[in-house]
Amino acid sequence: MTTLPMEYGLLLAGILFVIGLVSLLIRRNIIFMLISVEIMLNAAGLAFIVAGARWAQADGQVMFIFIVTMAAAEVSVGLALILQLYHNLKTLDSDAANLMYG
């Protein structure tokens, strides 16, 4: 079995991270912003897996399980906040939530 070079995996993780970051910066819909954050988290997780496979260590997979757990917790809190936001402002536009400006 031939192993993929580590650079491929890290490149994929980097591309995924940049896609997530750019969409986080340009999206106004707060649900899409949440999804972007998830993409960035998974990019980080992928980098851990690749690194764990490269050095044949279990640490990378342990870290990935942590990230998945944290992502689940984050999504639950994030969705609750989004519900509250929509409940109060009747919109999902994140720019509308600038009431505490200044």
Binding site: L21, L24, L25, I26, R28, M33, S94, D95, A97, N98, L99, M100, Y101, G102
Partner: peptide
């Protein structure tokens, strides 16, 4: 004080 615009994406930009 100008940078505190209340726009989330600006803050993100700052972090980045």
């Amino acid at each position: 004080a100008h940078t505190q615009s209340g726009i989330l994406r600006w803050y993100m930009m700052g972090v980045v």
